[in-house]
């Protein structure tokens, strides 16, 4: 038998080296996930020392079936899917386009790569504040610009669908840098000989893209689509910072936060309901799981087809 790491105790060295990572994963990721699943069947408040009772499926029934609130929850779920669709498709398309542009041998391309990636570094709070100030309706830059045309900048505090659309736009602005970088890395792995061969064969730019670039970007496409879908389904920070808890704008991620930390009524005296919020988290997890696995299945089949 050939042992890569030798015989005796050294044979176990790879497992020992993996152990810290595995332990870290269990403590930081798997443990809390399992705890959330258990919490979802309780009336936990998240307050240390408070009595926790087993309530079975009551939280799930309340979330999905109880009164008008359950219909509002399902609306939030639908809104989450709408948010996911627009963020994923636009961020994916824009990220690819920008990556292709900054992959050209242009003057100042490193500056533009940095510029497009910069919002990622800022973090959600700064991202939200920047846009709140930019869109400030009484003297903000956008308000001054729109005033030239007799229009107003009441976006984030205006009708819910307008505020919601702006959060989509800002989410894309905030995260497009990651999509761009992944595509850029993918583009740089494509051998230049393939482009030269295509051009010698007389291919036009579209044919070069569709027959060379696009198929060879498959790993980047798969990564970006998966990350964009999961990231947008779980989004909530920008909703909190930009518009707060407002009817007609909540997505599931924010609803979970607001419910868990007693912010749903807009009152400072509402209750902490982390057991109930945990049940909503599990529903969101199932949504991410189904969408993520379906996407992965489709993408893997596509990749296999291309490799044939």
């Amino acid at each position: 038998m050939n042992y890569h790491f030798g015989r005796g105790w050294t044979r176990w060295s790879p497992y020992l080296l993996l152990l810290p990572g595995i332990l870290f994963y269990f403590v930081i990721a798997l443990g809390p996930s399992l705890a959330t699943t258990v919490y979802s069947f309780t009336d936990a408040t998240g307050i240390k020392g408070a009595t926790v009772n087993w309530v079975g499926l009551a939280n799930y029934k309340e979330f999905l079936l109880m009164g008008q609130a359950s219909k509002d929850n399902l609306s939030a779920l639908g809104r989450t899917l709408v948010f996911c669709f627009f963020v994923t498709t636009i961020q994916f398309g824009l990220g690819l386009l920008v990556a292709m542009i900054v992959n050209q041998n242009l003057k100042g391309r490193n500056f533009f790569r940095t510029l497009y990636f910069m919002p990622i570094i800022l973090g959600a709070v700064i991202q939200g504040l920047v846009w709140s100030l930019f869109l400030y309706p009484l003297g903000g830059p956008m308000a001054k610009f729109l005033a030239l045309f007799g229009a107003r900048s009441e976006f984030l505090g205006g009708p819910p669908f307008v505020a919601f659309a702006w959060v989509i736009a800002i989410q894309i602005w905030a995260n497009m840098g990651t999509t761009m970088i992944i595509f850029l890395a993918g583009l740089q792995t494509i051998p230049s000989e393939l482009y030269e061969a295509a051009r010698i064969d007389g291919a036009n730019p579209w044919q070069v893209f569709s027959n060379v670039t696009w198929p060879l970007l498959t790993p980047s496409v798969n990564t970006n689509l998966t990350l964009n879908i999961i990231g947008s389904l779980q989004a909530w920070q920008l909703f909190l910072i930009l518009i707060g808890y407002r009817n007609g704008t909540q997505v599931l991620g924010y609803l979970i936060y607001a419910t868990g930390f007693g912010q749903t009524s807009g009152s400072v005296t509402s209750s902490f309901r982390q057991g109930y919020a945990a049940s909503a988290s599990i529903i969101l997890f199932l949504l991410v799981l189904v969408l993520g696995m379906t996407t992965n299945y489709i993408l893997q089949r596509r990749e296999a087809r291309i490799m044939e």
Binding site: E62, M66, G67, Q68, A69, S70, K71, D72, N247, S265, G266
Partner: peptide
């Protein structure tokens, strides 16, 4: 608010 009340019950 009673549980199950909608988001407009204010």
């Amino acid at each position: 608010a009673p549980k199950g009340a909608g988001q407009f019950a204010n």
